[in-house]
Design a protein around this nucleic acid. Structure first.
Lengths: 261, 261
DNA sequence: GCCCCAAACAACGA
DNA sequence: CTCGTTGTTTGGGG
């Protein structure tokens, strides 16, 4: 449920509480969601200090010394919890794993048990939407190499660019005035440039909005400010009626303002 | 173009002329259609006697001693020719390969060059529609294992059952009173049994019709007796108007008599 | 009309 | 709403 902007804010808030703390214990409450199945690998993390949290796409990477790290993907329903007391940590419903730091325990929970925790994760070379590696040239190259996709399917494909999900794809396409049904290969250069710019601005502005509305947030999502992917709105900010339709098998919100290429 | 019943008649007629004859020479006029690229393997066939011709699906298998065989698939436009004189054999247009037997030369030709000749062919375990291995239980098992296909797509899928092509699929479904648009998994047991029976009767009766109309045929096709897959007819034998429509990307003839499951 | 392949798309489970 | 796998559909080429 949370997408890139939410996760970016979670990252900052988790860093505030956990950076520099030693990891004292790990408990895998749902070993099936932990890859590889915990054991000797996991022991290497004990008494190590958390030096950084990175967000890549929809995953948070908890980084320790000597390249050791684990990655958490919340999938649809996963949640982070920070519990100062260990009895609180034990009380969290549907726990997947608990990471006991010096003063806080980080609990990952998921009632549907879809979320994934990977130890020593491999990182694929696909750039994150807000990383410097995601350049206009890269976007152009991917679009020309995959010219037959719906632009909506393209944007949410994590092998093209990491971090854009269903909701923000709609926001970005509306901001770019590009119909989600456009063929990826049909976008003229100006539209590609506009799309590239809007990917940055829509995501950055969403991060700012979320920080402002929920400064301490580490779970859930804030979406009430979305311009079109928003069931509570009937019209876009320009007054155009919002249409809802399946595109690339996903519920998609868009308006007639968006040009079909 | 020829389907299972035509090929079954070709088989009998080729056997009449060739069985027991030694193969004296092979010429690959279009080596690209011959697999594997002729050479030492092919030489093993020389001076061997043809002991049997088998039809499996839409292929004819020419069998020699010691398990040696080659298989011919005519695809859309391939043709067999039998030429008593070698100058006749040399005059055939668009030759793919020539097999010179004692008194006759068998020529395979194809103006579109789509047909395939395989030496020492592997035979996949999928049963032919008229073989004893194609049982009612087998059909039921395949249907339940692949429940989401159009029944038309199912019948012409050579991985399900070998030998049924576009035209006879329509004939079989009409005889079974099953709409080609039915989902394979939706057929009730009675319909599956009816379908199984009609596969046998439609194909066997077609073989008899073709033998009667063209006793010596070894190429081309006889289709004027088809009940629905027949552009010359406007109505089925029961007087229902015949509809033409693409189903599973194939031109399909059917009537409203056929139940949609 | 045949078969194979690749891409796109849908369905399902985890 | 997420991802991965599997199966189905479609289009093109030989």
């Amino acid at each position: 449920m949370p997408e890139l902007p939410d996760l970016e804010v979670f990252k900052g808030n988790l860093e505030k509480h956990l950076l520099g703390s030693p990891l004292l214990a790990i408990a895998a409450d749902s070993p099936g969601n932990v890859l590889p199945p915990k054991g000797p690998v996991v022991d290497q993390f004990l008494h190590q200090t958390l030096v950084d949290i990175q967000r890549i796409g929809k995953e948070l990477f908890f980084e320790f010394a000597d390249q050791k790290s684990f990655a958490v993907h919340l999938m649809l329903n996963g949640m982070f919890h920070l519990c100062p007391a260990s009895d609180q940590a034990a009380a969290v419903k549907s726990p997947i794993a608990r990471f006991q730091f010096h003063r806080q325990t980080l609990v990952v929970s998921d009632p549907k048990r879809l979320c994934k925790i990977r130890f020593m994760p491999k990182v694929t070379p696909v750039p994150d939407a807000l990383s410097p590696e995601f350049t206009l040239d890269y976007l152009k190259e991917r679009l020309t190499r995959n010219p037959l996709l719906n632009i909506k399917a393209f944007l949410i494909d994590q092998k093209m660019v990491k971090g854009i999900g269903n909701a923000y794809a709609d926001e970005i396409l509306w901001a770019s005035r590009i119909s989600p049904l456009s063929r990826s290969g049909n976008l003229p250069p100006e539209a590609v440039t506009e799309l590239y710019t809007r990917i940055q601005t829509v995501l950055h502005e969403a991060i700012i909005s979320i920080r402002q509305k929920a400064p301490e947030i580490i779970r859930g999502e804030i979406r009430d400010f979305l311009n079109v992917h928003n069931p509570r709105r009937q019209t876009s900010p320009t007054g155009q009626p919002i249409r809802v339709q399946k595109v690339a098998s996903k519920t998609t919100y868009f308006t007639e303002e968006q040009i079909l290429y």
